[in-house]
Structure formats: structure tokens, C-alpha cells
Nucleic acid binder design. Structure first.
Length: 263
DNA sequence: TTTACTGTTAGGAC
DNA sequence: TGTCCTAACAGTAA
């Protein structure tokens, strides 16, 4: 379930379990439609060790000081797990990295929207992709510059990885829910106070979810994440949760307290 | 059986 | 030229 907090949890799992172990071999699942490193690219990692990780938005990188990096993208349904090679693998494992000492890293991806590829230089990669600053690293002023000037819906602006990297459908909804702002409002009609509120709530949402390692059961009951159902009661104001499509994405919101609309 | 879904992106509209 | 929007991708679950 990969937006920024889910990717950060995955990065931490890799950091904790897959660094400083010699890479012994790779195993591929059935790989149709999933982009994976070629044999020649995989061979460059054999016998080496990963020594560090990075994350930018939803993009995860595993590599070393001098070697190439592996970019792991979870797509819509990807996940990673570090485990003993003796443990039974889950379904839909597309790629396995085996380390010395009987440990391995599994990349699981049921819907095949994810990918793993070799990247020479992370900064270069981010620049070429045109990714905006990471949503947890951007400051209030830069946020206002890039989001507050967008002519489209505030929700679409938050979802644009070119403006801001890391926000997806769920946490964009949660942010606007807390901000009391209709997801469909044009971003450039929001006051600077409202933009500041969105910035603060976004940061709060992302930091809180990161703090739970993206374990939703640890999030408070009154968060929208537990009430994403048309007709549910809003735990904040007792109003009604509705859904509508904004920028092609299903958006849940409270039609009673998310009342700020375009003029 | 039909519909919806946490992400990305090519192609088209404006 | 730039910005924005839609549809499509694949597989599963409700």
C-alpha cells in the first residue's frame, strides 16, 4: 500500500535487514510486464553488498557508496519483505535477492505495476523524472509556491509527483479532510492561511503514518482512513462521508465540514 | 458477474 | 509552450 509512509516503512525494513550482506544470487518470478534489471545489470551486484538506502517520495533506492543503485518502485500493490530463505514465499513474488547467511529480500507485486531497475545516480534519476521535492522535506514557503499557484483542484495538485513527491490518494484525502477543504477546490483560490493549514496537516498526516510504520490499525479511530465508505458518519462533525471523482481518483470527504469551495 | 482500486504516464484538449 | 485531464495498464476482492 505504497505512498510515502508505506515506502518509508519498506525502506526501513530493507535498511534493517538487507544491508552489509554479500549478494549471492537473484531469482526471478514469472516476470511478464514487470521491468527488472537485465542479467548483465544483475551481475554487477553479485558479490557486492548494499550499504545504504534512500527514499524520495514513493521511490526507494538501495545501493552502496561506489556501486550502482537498485530502484524499487512498489506501484499500486507492491511490497518488500526481508526473511530467511527457509521461510515459505508469499504469492506473486517477482524478484528475490539472496544474501549470504540464508537471508533474502522478496519483492512482491500482485498487480505488476511495480518495477525494479538499475540506477547509476539517484540525483540524476530524480532530476530526469522531474520529481518535485519530497513531501516531508519541503518547507511551507516552497509548498505555497508550488501548490498554491496550481489552477487545478487542490487534490490533483497534492497528487502531482512533479510538484511534490510522495502523496497519493489516501493521504491526500486524509489531509484535506483534516483541513476542512473540499478536494475539488481550485488550489489557487485558497488563501495563504488555508495553504498553510494544508501544509501543516499534510505534514502531520505523513509523520503520523510514518511513525506507525504504516500500520493503519494504530491510527486513531477518527481518521478518515477508517471511514472510507460512502454514507458513513463523519467521526469529526457527525456529518456524512461522501465520495466523488476528482482528477480521475475516487475521493472520500465529509460533505458537511469540508465546505471550502471555489468561487 | 460487475465494479473499484493505494500509482504512473502517454496522448490529447485547452 | 505549458498545464491539466483522461484513459489505460493487471489482477484480485467485494
Amino acid at each position: 500500500m505504497p505512498e510515502l509512509p508505506e515506502c518509508e516503512a519498506a525502506r526501513k525494513r530493507i535498511e534493517a535487514g538487507a544491508l552489509n550482506r554479500t549478494i549471492e544470487r537473484f531469482a526471478l518470478g514469472e516476470v511478464s510486464h514487470v521491468e527488472l534489471p537485465t542479467k548483465a545489470e544483475r551481475d554487477r551486484f553479485l558479490g557486492t553488498q548494499f550499504t545504504r538506502t534512500q527514499r524520495h517520495g514513493k521511490y526507494i533506492f538501495v545501493g552502496s557508496a561506489d556501486g550502482p543503485w537498485l530502484h524499487i518502485h512498489l506501484g499500486m500493490s507492491g511490497s518488500v519483505r526481508v526473511m530467511d530463505t527457509t521461510e515459505p514465499p508469499a504469492d506473486y513474488v517477482r524478484f528475490t535477492i539472496e544474501f549470504e547467511g540464508g537471508r533474502c529480500l522478496h519483492f512482491r507485486d500482485p498487480r505488476k505495476f511495480g518495477l525494479i531497475e538499475l540506477v547509476e545516480d539517484v540525483d540524476d534519476f530524480i532530476a530526469k523524472k522531474g520529481l518535485g521535492p519530497d513531501a516531508l522535506k519541503i518547507g511551507n514557503n516552497a509548498f505555497a509556491d508550488v501548490i498554491g499557484t496550481t489552477r487545478g483542484a487542490i487534490k490533483s495538485a497534492l497528487l502531482s509527483q512533479k510538484k511534490l513527491a510522495g502523496v497519493g490518494n489516501l493521504w491526500a484525502d486524509e489531509t484535506l479532510y483534516r483541513s476542512g477543504i473540499d478536494p475539488e477546490v481550485r488550489a489557487d483560490t485558497l488563501s495563504s492561511d488555508e495553504i498553510r493549514t494544508v501544509f501543516a496537516e499534510l505534514r502531520h498526516v505523513l509523520e503520523t503514518v510514518v511513525g506507525t510504520n504504516a500500520d493503519y490499525s494504530k491510527l486513531p479511530d477518527d481518521w478518515l482512513i477508517h471511514h472510507r465508505k460512502d454514507g458513513d458518519t463523519c467521526p469529526g462533525c457527525g456529518g456524512q462521508i461522501s465520495k466523488k471523482t476528482v482528477g480521475g481518483r475516487t475521493s472520500y470527504f465529509c460533505s458537511d465540514h469540508q465546505v471550502r469551495t471555489s468561487q
